[in-house]
Protein backbone atom coordinates (compact mmCIF):
# COMPACT_ATOMS: atom_id res chain seq x y z
CA UNK A 1 0.00 0.00 0.00
CA UNK A 2 2.89 2.32 0.80
CA UNK A 3 4.50 2.08 -2.64
CA UNK A 4 1.10 2.84 -4.15
CA UNK A 5 0.77 5.90 -1.94
CA UNK A 6 4.15 7.29 -2.95
CA UNK A 7 3.37 6.64 -6.59
CA UNK A 8 0.04 8.47 -6.32
CA UNK A 9 1.73 11.47 -4.69
CA UNK A 10 4.47 11.45 -7.35
CA UNK A 11 1.89 11.43 -10.18
CA UNK A 12 -0.10 14.21 -8.54
CA UNK A 13 2.90 16.51 -8.88
CA UNK A 14 2.20 16.38 -12.62
CA UNK A 15 -1.59 16.65 -12.02
CA UNK A 16 -1.97 13.01 -13.11
CA UNK A 17 -4.09 10.26 -11.56
CA UNK A 18 -3.69 6.48 -11.56
CA UNK A 19 -6.77 5.96 -13.73
CA UNK A 20 -5.93 8.78 -16.13
CA UNK A 21 -8.74 11.10 -15.02
CA UNK A 22 -8.46 14.87 -14.77
CA UNK A 23 -8.39 16.28 -11.23
CA UNK A 24 -11.97 17.55 -11.48
CA UNK A 25 -13.32 14.56 -13.39
CA UNK A 26 -15.79 12.16 -11.79
CA UNK A 27 -15.76 8.45 -12.58
CA UNK A 28 -18.80 7.16 -14.52
CA UNK A 29 -21.92 7.47 -12.37
CA UNK A 30 -25.05 5.38 -12.57
CA UNK A 31 -28.24 6.00 -10.61
CA UNK A 32 -30.83 3.21 -10.52
CA UNK A 33 -34.10 3.86 -8.73
CA UNK A 34 -36.83 1.58 -7.40
CA UNK A 35 -34.37 -1.22 -6.70
CA UNK A 36 -36.27 -2.50 -3.66
CA UNK A 37 -39.85 -3.81 -3.73
CA UNK A 38 -40.34 -3.27 -0.03
CA UNK A 39 -39.00 0.23 0.33
CA UNK A 40 -41.11 3.34 -0.18
CA UNK A 41 -38.24 4.70 -2.24
CA UNK A 42 -34.82 3.33 -3.08
CA UNK A 43 -31.75 3.81 -5.20
CA UNK A 44 -28.46 2.17 -6.06
CA UNK A 45 -25.63 4.49 -6.99
CA UNK A 46 -22.48 3.28 -8.67
CA UNK A 47 -19.48 5.56 -8.98
CA UNK A 48 -16.62 3.62 -10.55
CA UNK A 49 -16.27 0.59 -8.25
CA UNK A 50 -18.11 2.20 -5.34
CA UNK A 51 -21.66 0.95 -4.78
CA UNK A 52 -24.05 2.49 -2.28
CA UNK A 53 -27.73 1.69 -1.62
CA UNK A 54 -30.23 4.03 -0.05
CA UNK A 55 -33.78 3.26 1.00
CA UNK A 56 -36.62 5.24 2.53
CA UNK A 57 -39.21 3.63 4.81
CA UNK A 58 -42.13 5.53 6.30
CA UNK A 59 -43.97 5.14 9.58
CA UNK A 60 -46.28 7.33 11.63
CA UNK A 61 -45.37 8.76 15.00
CA UNK A 62 -46.11 11.54 17.43
CA UNK A 63 -44.35 14.78 16.50
CA UNK A 64 -41.65 16.33 18.66
CA UNK A 65 -43.13 18.84 21.11
CA UNK A 66 -41.05 21.72 19.68
CA UNK A 67 -42.25 21.08 16.11
CA UNK A 68 -45.84 19.75 16.39
CA UNK A 69 -46.62 20.41 12.71
CA UNK A 70 -43.52 18.84 11.17
CA UNK A 71 -42.61 15.33 10.13
CA UNK A 72 -39.41 13.65 11.23
CA UNK A 73 -36.43 12.23 9.35
CA UNK A 74 -33.72 9.96 10.72
CA UNK A 75 -30.64 8.90 8.80
CA UNK A 76 -28.40 5.91 9.45
CA UNK A 77 -25.45 4.59 7.54
CA UNK A 78 -23.90 1.17 7.66
CA UNK A 79 -20.67 0.10 6.03
CA UNK A 80 -21.23 -3.54 5.18
CA UNK A 81 -18.33 -5.92 5.89
CA UNK A 82 -18.61 -7.11 2.28
CA UNK A 83 -17.56 -3.65 1.05
CA UNK A 84 -14.03 -3.66 2.39
CA UNK A 85 -11.70 -5.60 4.67
CA UNK A 86 -11.64 -2.44 6.78
CA UNK A 87 -15.29 -2.70 7.79
CA UNK A 88 -16.29 -4.91 10.68
CA UNK A 89 -20.00 -4.43 11.19
CA UNK A 90 -21.55 -3.83 14.59
CA UNK A 91 -22.33 -0.50 16.21
CA UNK A 92 -21.74 2.43 13.83
CA UNK A 93 -18.29 3.94 14.26
CA UNK A 94 -17.40 7.60 13.94
CA UNK A 95 -16.92 7.42 10.16
CA UNK A 96 -20.43 6.02 9.65
CA UNK A 97 -21.94 8.48 12.10
CA UNK A 98 -20.25 11.40 10.33
CA UNK A 99 -21.35 10.27 6.87
CA UNK A 100 -24.96 9.83 7.98
CA UNK A 101 -25.01 13.20 9.69
CA UNK A 102 -23.47 15.04 6.72
CA UNK A 103 -26.00 13.54 4.30
CA UNK A 104 -28.83 14.24 6.75
CA UNK A 105 -27.82 17.88 7.24
CA UNK A 106 -27.47 18.41 3.49
CA UNK A 107 -31.06 17.31 2.88
CA UNK A 108 -32.48 19.05 5.95
CA UNK A 109 -30.68 22.34 5.29
CA UNK A 110 -31.80 22.43 1.67
CA UNK A 111 -35.45 22.26 2.75
CA UNK A 112 -36.03 20.22 -0.40
CA UNK A 113 -37.94 17.74 1.72
CA UNK A 114 -40.96 19.66 3.01
CA UNK A 115 -41.34 18.59 6.64
CA UNK A 116 -44.60 20.51 7.04
CA UNK A 117 -46.16 18.35 4.34
CA UNK A 118 -45.13 15.32 6.39
CA UNK A 119 -47.59 16.36 9.10
CA UNK A 120 -50.81 14.31 9.29
CA UNK A 121 -52.57 15.83 12.35
CA UNK A 122 -50.74 18.72 14.01
CA UNK A 123 -49.59 17.84 17.52
CA UNK A 124 -50.81 14.27 17.16
CA UNK A 125 -49.46 12.41 14.21
CA UNK A 126 -46.74 12.97 11.62
CA UNK A 127 -44.84 10.94 9.07
CA UNK A 128 -41.53 9.56 10.20
CA UNK A 129 -39.09 8.83 7.38
CA UNK A 130 -36.18 6.49 7.88
CA UNK A 131 -33.32 6.97 5.46
CA UNK A 132 -30.92 4.02 5.49
CA UNK A 133 -27.65 4.14 3.61
CA UNK A 134 -25.66 0.97 2.98
CA UNK A 135 -22.19 0.87 1.53
CA UNK A 136 -21.92 -2.32 -0.53
CA UNK A 137 -18.58 -1.82 -2.23
CA UNK A 138 -15.96 0.71 -1.19
CA UNK A 139 -13.68 2.32 -3.71
CA UNK A 140 -13.68 5.81 -2.24
CA UNK A 141 -15.87 8.90 -2.33
CA UNK A 142 -18.50 7.37 -0.08
CA UNK A 143 -20.06 10.62 1.10
CA UNK A 144 -20.88 11.77 -2.44
CA UNK A 145 -22.25 8.37 -3.43
CA UNK A 146 -24.37 8.26 -0.26
CA UNK A 147 -25.72 11.78 -0.81
CA UNK A 148 -26.64 11.04 -4.42
CA UNK A 149 -28.34 7.78 -3.40
CA UNK A 150 -30.24 9.52 -0.60
CA UNK A 151 -31.56 12.27 -2.86
CA UNK A 152 -32.55 9.70 -5.50
CA UNK A 153 -34.32 7.50 -2.93
CA UNK A 154 -36.37 10.44 -1.65
CA UNK A 155 -37.27 11.51 -5.20
CA UNK A 156 -38.35 7.94 -5.89
CA UNK A 157 -40.40 7.55 -2.68
CA UNK A 158 -44.20 7.28 -2.46
CA UNK A 159 -46.38 7.35 0.64
CA UNK A 160 -47.74 4.04 1.94
CA UNK A 161 -51.50 3.77 2.52
CA UNK A 162 -53.06 4.31 5.94
CA UNK A 163 -55.83 2.07 7.27
CA UNK A 164 -59.08 3.25 8.93
CA UNK A 165 -57.26 3.61 12.27
CA UNK A 166 -54.60 5.73 10.63
CA UNK A 167 -51.86 3.09 10.81
CA UNK A 168 -49.61 2.22 7.88
CA UNK A 169 -51.38 -0.49 5.88
CA UNK A 170 -48.83 -2.90 4.40
CA UNK A 171 -51.48 -5.20 2.89
CA UNK A 172 -52.06 -2.82 -0.02
CA UNK A 173 -49.56 -1.33 -2.48
CA UNK A 174 -48.01 2.10 -1.99
CA UNK A 175 -50.15 5.06 -2.98
CA UNK A 176 -49.34 7.13 -6.06
CA UNK A 177 -48.55 10.13 -3.91
CA UNK A 178 -44.89 11.15 -4.04
CA UNK A 179 -43.01 12.33 -0.99
CA UNK A 180 -42.75 16.16 -0.87
CA UNK A 181 -39.20 16.31 -2.23
CA UNK A 182 -38.63 19.37 -4.41
CA UNK A 183 -35.13 19.62 -5.75
CA UNK A 184 -31.90 17.72 -5.52
CA UNK A 185 -29.50 18.61 -2.70
CA UNK A 186 -26.08 17.18 -3.51
CA UNK A 187 -23.02 16.74 -1.32
CA UNK A 188 -19.79 16.92 -3.29
CA UNK A 189 -16.40 16.32 -1.73
CA UNK A 190 -13.14 18.00 -2.69
CA UNK A 191 -9.97 16.43 -1.36
CA UNK A 192 -6.63 18.07 -0.99
CA UNK A 193 -3.65 15.84 -1.45
CA UNK A 194 -0.18 17.41 -1.53
CA UNK A 195 -1.63 20.85 -2.16
CA UNK A 196 -3.75 19.66 -5.10
CA UNK A 197 -7.58 19.84 -5.07
CA UNK A 198 -9.33 16.88 -6.64
CA UNK A 199 -12.79 15.33 -7.02
CA UNK A 200 -14.14 11.81 -6.64
CA UNK A 201 -11.15 10.11 -5.04
CA UNK A 202 -10.68 6.35 -5.15
CA UNK A 203 -9.87 4.38 -2.02
CA UNK A 204 -6.21 4.22 -3.05
CA UNK A 205 -6.13 7.99 -3.43
CA UNK A 206 -7.80 8.47 -0.06
CA UNK A 207 -5.10 6.23 1.47
CA UNK A 208 -2.61 8.90 0.39
CA UNK A 209 -4.12 10.97 3.23
CA UNK A 210 -5.15 14.60 2.99
CA UNK A 211 -7.99 16.82 4.12
CA UNK A 212 -11.40 16.94 2.54
CA UNK A 213 -14.26 19.36 2.45
CA UNK A 214 -17.79 18.27 1.55
CA UNK A 215 -20.12 21.02 0.38
CA UNK A 216 -23.83 20.44 -0.21
CA UNK A 217 -25.59 22.72 -2.68
CA UNK A 218 -29.21 22.86 -3.74
CA UNK A 219 -30.62 23.54 -7.19
CA UNK A 220 -30.19 27.33 -7.00
CA UNK A 221 -26.52 26.93 -6.12
CA UNK A 222 -26.87 27.93 -2.47
CA UNK A 223 -24.76 26.05 0.06
CA UNK A 224 -26.73 24.10 2.68
CA UNK A 225 -23.99 22.30 4.55
CA UNK A 226 -20.23 22.14 4.83
CA UNK A 227 -18.11 19.53 6.53
CA UNK A 228 -14.34 19.44 6.65
CA UNK A 229 -12.61 16.22 7.63
CA UNK A 230 -9.46 14.18 7.26
CA UNK A 231 -6.00 15.32 8.23
CA UNK A 232 -4.73 18.65 6.98
CA UNK A 233 -5.78 22.23 6.36
CA UNK A 234 -7.16 24.46 3.63
CA UNK A 235 -6.47 28.12 2.99
CA UNK A 236 -9.58 30.28 2.80
CA UNK A 237 -8.93 30.75 -0.93
CA UNK A 238 -8.97 26.97 -1.37
CA UNK A 239 -12.29 26.75 0.46
CA UNK A 240 -13.76 29.36 -1.90
CA UNK A 241 -12.37 27.43 -4.87
CA UNK A 242 -13.85 24.18 -3.52
CA UNK A 243 -17.25 25.89 -3.22
CA UNK A 244 -17.06 26.82 -6.90
CA UNK A 245 -16.06 23.31 -7.98
CA UNK A 246 -18.78 21.61 -5.94
CA UNK A 247 -21.52 23.89 -7.24
CA UNK A 248 -20.48 23.20 -10.83
CA UNK A 249 -20.20 19.45 -10.29
CA UNK A 250 -23.59 19.19 -8.55
CA UNK A 251 -25.21 21.03 -11.47
CA UNK A 252 -23.62 18.64 -13.93
CA UNK A 253 -25.01 15.68 -11.97
CA UNK A 254 -28.53 17.13 -11.84
CA UNK A 255 -28.45 17.74 -15.59
CA UNK A 256 -26.83 14.37 -16.33
CA UNK A 257 -27.17 11.26 -14.16
CA UNK A 258 -30.37 12.47 -12.42
CA UNK A 259 -32.10 13.41 -15.69
CA UNK A 260 -31.26 9.97 -17.02
CA UNK A 261 -32.65 8.18 -13.94
CA UNK A 262 -35.91 10.13 -13.61
Amino acid sequence: MKANKEYILEMLKASKRLDGRALDEMRPIKIEIGISENAEGSARVTIGDTVVLAGVKMATAEPYSDSPDKGVMTTSAEFMPCASHKFEGGRPGEVEVELARVVDRGIRGSECLDFEKLCITPGEKVWLSFLDILVLDHDGNLIDAAGIAAAAAFLDAKFPALDSEGKVDRSVPLTDKKLPMAGIPLAITVRKINGVLMLDTTEAEEEAVGARVTITTKDNGNITSIQMGGIGGFTDAEISEAAKITEKTAKKLRDGAFKKAF
Binding site: S110, G221, N222, I223, I226, M228, T235
Partner: peptide, 29 residues
Protein backbone atom coordinates in the same frame (compact mmCIF):
# COMPACT_ATOMS: atom_id res chain seq x y z
CA UNK B 1 -3.87 27.85 12.86
CA UNK B 2 -2.16 30.81 14.53
CA UNK B 3 0.68 31.31 12.08
CA UNK B 4 -0.82 31.08 8.61
CA UNK B 5 -4.61 30.89 9.09
CA UNK B 6 -4.93 27.35 7.71
CA UNK B 7 -8.51 26.21 8.13
CA UNK B 8 -8.41 23.05 10.26
CA UNK B 9 -12.10 22.65 11.03
CA UNK B 10 -15.04 23.84 8.99
CA UNK B 11 -18.67 22.89 9.24
CA UNK B 12 -21.85 24.62 8.22
CA UNK B 13 -25.55 24.27 8.62
CA UNK B 14 -28.21 26.38 6.95
CA UNK B 15 -28.71 27.97 3.56
CA UNK B 16 -26.34 30.55 2.15
CA UNK B 17 -24.69 31.82 -1.02
CA UNK B 18 -21.03 31.51 -1.95
CA UNK B 19 -20.71 35.25 -1.28
CA UNK B 20 -21.94 34.66 2.31
CA UNK B 21 -19.33 31.92 2.68
CA UNK B 22 -16.51 34.21 1.64
CA UNK B 23 -17.68 36.97 4.00
CA UNK B 24 -18.01 34.56 6.90
CA UNK B 25 -14.48 33.31 6.30
CA UNK B 26 -13.21 36.91 6.61
CA UNK B 27 -15.09 37.50 9.87
CA UNK B 28 -13.94 34.13 11.25
CA UNK B 29 -10.33 34.90 10.36
Amino acid sequence: THRDNKVMLLQMDGDMSREDLNQMLIVAK
